[in-house]
Design a protein around this nucleic acid. Sequence first.
DNA 1: CTGAAAGCGCTTACAG
DNA 2: CTGAAAGCGCTTACAG
Lengths: 326, 326
Amino acid sequence: MTIYDIAAKAGVSASTVSRVINARPGIKKATRERVERIIRESNFSVSEAARGLVNQTSRMIGILVSDIRNQHHTEGAYMIEQHFLRLGYCSMILNAGEDPESMAGHIMILASRRVEAAVLIGSVFQNALVEKAVRDYMPHIPVIFQNGEFSLPNVSSVLSDDEEGTFAAVRYLHIRGRRSAAYVSGPETPSGSRKISGYLRACGECRQDELLYFCDGTAEGGADVTEKLLAEHPETDAVVYAFDLMAVSGSRRILDSRRRIPDDIAVMGTDNSPFSSLANPRLSTIDTRLQELSSLCSVMLERALSDPSFREKRIITPSLVLRETT
Amino acid sequence: MTIYDIAAKAGVSASTVSRVINARPGIKKATRERVERIIRESNFSVSEAARGLVNQTSRMIGILVSDIRNQHHTEGAYMIEQHFLRLGYCSMILNAGEDPESMAGHIMILASRRVEAAVLIGSVFQNALVEKAVRDYMPHIPVIFQNGEFSLPNVSSVLSDDEEGTFAAVRYLHIRGRRSAAYVSGPETPSGSRKISGYLRACGECRQDELLYFCDGTAEGGADVTEKLLAEHPETDAVVYAFDLMAVSGSRRILDSRRRIPDDIAVMGTDNSPFSSLANPRLSTIDTRLQELSSLCSVMLERALSDPSFREKRIITPSLVLRETT
DNA sequence: CTGAAAGCGCTTACAG
DNA sequence: CTGAAAGCGCTTACAG
């Protein structure tokens, strides 16, 4: 079914049908109403693809996350999808995976769909291959990078000050008398590195030993590395985790070792995710203010869409949420 | 940049460029390589919209969830997106909201994007308005309904046997000696109703009183209704929750009331979500086998896409996962 | 107020 | 092995 079919049924030309659909002025009321009725009765909907071809617009936004099942990414994708749906855009949300090759490939997919804007969610996207793909394949559309940055004129950034967040957490623990605060990092992303820097800076400033551990970022990984940490450094009296998820599973392992939280060991997570408030004991955490971050992305994208020269970098400073584990 | 630009640079016609792009046979090797090089050097990518217009395909799948931030929905969306990306499809994942009007509107959005197939995730979509929208606006493309069904020839279903799952949980508790098992339901979706039926059937079969409570499905709602339940029915010795999330927050409220879990009160959640295994105490739960459900959707959709007459209804029976709360 | 025609960026029969 | 032409479903200047 095309507008020509509608035109035939209504006894008018396709031009007129098009004008009705697009609410253009200067159509006789009777004609308009007849055409509208026939459109409705025929269950006709205009092809956005054909429309986009002539208008040179796709009315699509591309959103890249590495894995949509990760709550942390979903918040941003949700906000943007909802916000732009109201403005008539559809969102293509793609799981771009973890390796740079795959991510760059997804940039090309978005390019071939001619999205009018793109959003990258997560610092994992900050690598040379993705940057090159953006430069080569989407040099003229606004791109918002949540928690990462590129030196490209069309890429704006909304960053969480991860360094400061972790620093603040460790210093807080120090002020509260903890003298051996360990840090458990997840995978080595740019964001992860910033968190580590914050930890190291705090260690320096508080004159305490560096107890830095790495794991894969999963609940199991967090639990296992916690066990290792406790075995190797029984003097540990606080642990800060790069993600709430690890902090929750880590806490469990600490409790299993017959240590008390927070009496023997204080625990802090990162992100203030649903896991943190639901945990038992309720988890103290570094709130990266994901919602504000996400809504800022949304607002900035809307501005960038209307102003081609728009480029901004915004940084949001995390705050500490103190609950039962500190 | 169009294939005409590429053609001009390569000194060939657009037809030839098109053939190279589509890997059609019968192109001189030298020509092919020259065109390929120019495409690469120009960072050209073919417009999927234009291509779709002539081929009458969009290579897009529409996925409707009510809220992408809900882990429960994301699993299915993830599997389908990943599976079909490999087959050359892009996924439009839309948050269709909670009210039938909005959901039906989203069906129309997908229709105007000419998606080649659609997936509805969640029994909330099972209502007259959505069914009508599907019948009217996407009568000829395969639709897979996760956890719901429509009597339409193009709609296949993958259902969780929620009734049986809840029944099994309550009966298990009865066998283990619990005589006053309450049930906390979430919002009244078709799936929620089936769960309630299972609870009521179990009450009948086990000859126990019906202690049925409702809440909004959130963590706070679950905690509050638990408190009410304990006040009104102090004899309660088990609680089954329609979602893990509520079970976790509910458990916390039970512990706060100085009752022991599971000694005084046994607790079971539903879904075997990440929350359940991370909870303290670790939550026993009705495993609705979300992953199997999701991958079945994916497999069925692929079959439906290649066989227009395909229509199936599959039911997956939940199993019980027993951990520390029972 | 309405219609005929051109054109958006592709693909594909048809011709050579 | 390659090209000219028509057509996918729309929109929009132009003409009337």
